[in-house]
Design a protein around this nucleic acid. Structure first.
Length: 227
DNA sequence: AACTCCCCCAACCGCAACCTG
DNA sequence: CCAGGTTGCGGTTGGGGGAGT
């Protein structure tokens, strides 16, 4: 036996909400609250909708103090900073931006902000494209080819350290990888980047302090992906 | 004007976490 | 502790509409 469906799929309406449905839902919740039970709510409110659909509509659109429209530079900064540190934890990011929903931020990131950031990162990626082979003193650590430290950044957990193999049995750890900085709408965004052993390149968005607890981003088959 | 392409965003889906009896 | 129900989350989809030809 499979999982029980959350509602009778044959009897629920799907797709965009009509103004009448919005009004019904809003009126019901204004009057009675959600009652702590979204599954039962649509029937009580006289809606032919799945409880999950009602919840989503309320949280993302109908609830008071929802902010729609353009994101500000400051909101951009908050999203970039948090994404670099915690990744796609949209609900946590949304909690830092009053009036914004996780869905809103997710859409904004996927459609606009990511592109903005990638465009800003283009010089860094281009530098990696131009990388033709391991430099004389390349290093290998955890299957990653690390090369040419020009570093001025450091890592609190040591995760970005280069391992320098001097070839005579002597090994040395060194802070940092290749390091770049770009300006993005008033935001100073820094990047740590290196190449790995299969010839792909990857980079990491770091925060303004040069810490690199973010997510590695890599070009795979021509596409930029988080790894 | 008609058509195609592409972007954006609201909404859906599946799953994991949480809650409750 | 366990099982079933519910909620919350993040990835994905698809339709509307604007831009380009």
């Amino acid at each position: 036996m499979g999982r029980a469906p959350c509602c009778d799929k044959a009897n629920v309406k799907k797709g965009p909400w009509s103004p009448e449905e919005d009004a019904k839902l809003k009126e019901y919740i204004d009057k009675y609250g959600t009652g702590g039970n979204w599954i039962a709510l649509p029937q009580k409110a006289g809606l032919k909708r799945c409880g999950k659909s009602c919840r989503l509509r309320w949280l993302n659109y109908l609830r008071p103090n929802i902010k729609h429209g353009e994101f500000t530079e400051n909101e951009d900064r908050v999203i970039c900073g948090l994404f670099a540190n915690i990744g796609s934890r949209w609900s946590i990011i949304a909690a830092q931006l009053p009036g914004r929903t996780d869905n809103d931020i997710k859409n904004y990131w996927n459609t606009k902000l990511k592109k903005k950031l990638m465009a800003a990162a283009a010089p860094v990626l281009q530098a990696q494209e131009n990388f033709v082979g391991p430099p004389q003193n390349y290093q290998i650590k955890d299957n990653l080819l690390m090369f040419g430290s020009e570093a001025s950044c450091s890592s609190s957990d040591g995760s970005s350290n280069n391992l320098i193999n001097h070839g005579n049995g002597e090994r040395e750890y060194e802070y940092g990888g290749n390091y770049g900085e770009v300006q993005m709408g008033g935001l100073q965004q820094s990047f740590l980047y290196n190449g790995n052993i299969d010839g792909n390149q990857r980079f990491m968005i770091s925060n303004g302090d040069g810490d690199v607890n973010g997510n590695w981003i890599q070009k795979q088959n021509g596409e930029i992906k988080k790894i």
